[in-house]
Design a protein around this nucleic acid. Structure first.
Lengths: 189, 189
DNA sequence: GCCGGTAGTCAACGCCCGGTGACTTAATGG
DNA sequence: CCATTAAGTCACCGGGCGTTGACTACCGGC
């Protein structure tokens, strides 16, 4: 006992990146308000002061996280005709851990803090919705893109609120099936 | 100046009810964390201490608000064949003020605070989903009910995140149309 | 007309948060 | 091998929160 953990090698850039990663992870799992600077710092194994030093304010860190998130492009890669099935499966079954939808998760977790939502609103449109709408294409692309993303987020929220879906695995499977159809229809027009 | 507002007549029951109303209103507009006891008290025109006195803790007040919310039964009243159109219109256009979906709004705003979500999870299922599923009826009622409510909440979240939808009125109208179809299809099976 | 109890207020407490400046420690170049 | 400088820590501040106990003002009954 009293054995010290080996101190992290002194490397500002790596530490900064580690902090950013930890913050992204935290913000994807908990809301803006629930995540504390001390939590993030603790994940990395540094002092909370360092986080402030590197990223300025908490809001600055949050926007940095948003910027560092993939702009949802994973949604659009892969076979387009499989879009519904693929996304439905991910949003229903993915344990929110290694999911590709981290950016989306962070966005919906920001429903709550007024500050976080302002920041999300600023980046959300151009970084996510507009590219997505462009990919969706066709008649009323903006409307259909918004409809699709709303449906996806709705499922995520619903899972959050009920803690899982409290449905049987078989029911979940059928839900995925139904949702896949809905999403695919939206995408196809 | 120095004119005092007429003091509210001393009536414990009425004051208690007023506090509950104000709290419900607040929790429907802002997240659990963003709403302060002092805010609620201020809305009613009483001291924050009184809120604590009447309802115990903030969590107790929140659960009292949840209990006081209509269990979403407004969703189910009215012509069933008009369900999709009616709900879609409400969730897209309703300024979240006098909407019938206040309970739903509060639920989705609780995505954030860990504490609030626990409380919502406790009451959400039996008070909202189960009756709704019963009303939906038919094959896979639970799945379809969850799908419908997820869709509705998704739209609400989406509106929150983007602050309105940043779509033109005409586009909003078309979105309502599309969403109405989706919802109606879910309900009809 | 006073008086007891209840409705409501006031001031304060303890807590936790984000943020800052002074300090310590480790790596690096000569 | 040491000086310098960057990397990281520590103690602490100010502020806002929920909550509490002591206080005040009102009102119905004698």
């Amino acid at each position: 006992m009293f054995c010290h953990v080996p101190p992290r090698p002194r490397n500002a850039e790596a530490t900064r990146a580690a902090i950013l990663d930890a913050a992204r992870e935290r913000f994807a799992r908990e809301s803006y308000d629930d995540v504390g600077m001390r939590d993030i710092a603790g994940d990395v194994g540094v002092d909370a002061a360092l986080v402030s030093r590197y990223f300025g304010s908490k809001e600055d860190l949050f926007t940095a996280v948003l910027d560092s998130c993939s702009n949802g492009s994973e949604l659009m890669e892969g076979d387009r005709s499989e879009f519904g099935r693929r996304v439905a499966r991910e949003v229903v079954f993915e344990p929110a851990k290694e999911g590709k939808l981290k950016g989306l998760l962070i966005m919906l977790r920001s429903v709550g803090s007024t500050k976080a939502m302002e920041l999300v609103q600023r980046t959300g449109s151009e970084r996510f919705f507009n590219p997505f709408a462009a990919w969706v294409g066709g008649e009323d692309a903006a409307v259909r893109a918004r409809l699709a993303s709303a449906t996806i987020m709705g499922m995520a929220v619903s899972r959050e609120i009920t803690g899982g879906f409290d449905l049987s695995p078989a029911e979940c499977e059928r839900m995925v099936g139904r949702m896949a159809v809905i999403l695919q229809d939206i995408i196809d027009g």
